[in-house]
Design a protein around this nucleic acid. Structure first.
Lengths: 201, 201
DNA sequence: AACTATACGGAGGCACCCTCCGTTTGTCAA
DNA sequence: TTGACAAACGGAGGGTGCCTCCGTATAGTT
């Protein structure tokens, strides 16, 4: 027996869940379009769902962005889990970081979203921070355990570096630059034998 | 005879000039509203002018913002001229800086405008920079000549400080803070006797 | 005063926002 | 299985904004 307050609740309808998922996928796609502008009606169309359904799931634009953002963070987390299982540690980490760059690069329209997020619930911020930190830890620890990655860089630190890389890259077509910086950093993380661990603070 | 290329041009119509002015005033007002959102139709209504007239004068949103911004810069310049004529030098400068704070503070909706301007024509940027620098020079020089303001601060430098003050003040209701900083700086500029001129580079 | 370049105004077509409500459908109890 | 109904769906509709087009009004010119 589920112990909910007065009146047992039903389990959520299957079509509701499906439509919500569809909307998130559609939103991610539409907002990624180069235009930067995106109408909610376009999202509904893309999802092949009535506009009313969209509004029921996401009463406001902010709610929509919030959910999309969470969704992407979750996907990054899942990707980290997968990569930490299948590939060798260094390449796994590298691929995950690439995925981050790619995600940000293709989300032109997400700029607006990010602004809303930045001004929005700090709950969302801590959520994504925790989630991403954990994802990085997953990838990092394996490499450290295998002795191919240096052990003195904390997951939060790596995350901050990543954010810094994104932040520092302005203007058009910055993806190559960001990718290069990621590579440099990963290479640096590999220098566990020659340079020795824990040189400097 | 006016020597214009092929066919002598008429002098611009009076109603055209009047309407343009009205639109600029209306736009400044509407964009200043707390909402941050502003429709061009609202501007036209405020100006008591047809929407068609608005679009004829300002074909795009950017053109509108551009013109409004120029207009405000011009008004600041005029204010500087007036203040440099009527009040005592220090108070004149102070009042002018206050006017700047007030202008920025009440232009919530101008944030969007400023972004467009920032990404827009660099011509506009140099225009306003020059204009404001000259305005400051007007106020500064009198004080220096009268010996009540130190002489080693250039107009451009003061402008940069002002921009810095605006830039550093985030969040709601920052006007008091900005005003305080302005006061501090003006007081500093007055310290021509006790602290001596040109201490340090 | 007549002429005409110029400017005016707003109707109209399209897109978007958001709400409301009649219809459909998945869930659960019998 | 089946029937009842809460829950979810979809889209019409009313409001607003964007921008264009063109018939009408009018300020400058002769």
């Amino acid at each position: 027996m589920k112990a909910k307050s007065a009146k047992t609740r039903r389990k959520p309808r299957a079509d509701s869940i499906r439509n919500r998922e569809r909307l998130l996928v559609a939103a991610a796609k539409v907002f990624s379009a180069d235009t930067g502008q995106a109408s909610l009606e376009a999202v509904a169309r893309e999802a092949a769902v009535g506009i009313g359904t969209l509004y029921r799931h996401f009463p406001t634009r902010e709610a929509m962005f919030d959910a999309v953002y969470r969704h992407e963070v979750d996907q990054l987390f899942v990707l980290a889990e997968k990569l930490s299982r299948s590939t060798d540690p260094v390449e796994g980490l590298r691929k995950w970081l690439y995925a981050n760059v790619h995600l940000v690069a293709t989300k032109k329209g997400m700029v607006e979203a990010l602004q809303l997020v930045a001004h929005g619930s700090s709950e969302l911020k801590t959520y994504s921070f925790d989630r991403l930190t954990t994802a990085i830890a997953l990838l990092l620890d394996r490499g450290v355990a295998a002795g191919v990655l240096r052990s003195d860089v904390a997951p939060e630190e790596l995350l901050r570096v990543l954010v810094g890389i994104f932040y520092s890259q302005a203007g058009e077509n910055w993806q190559p630059g960001a990718t290069r910086l990621v590579n440099v950093f990963v290479d640096g993380l590999c220098s566990t034998s020659s340079a020795g661990k824990r040189r400097r603070l």
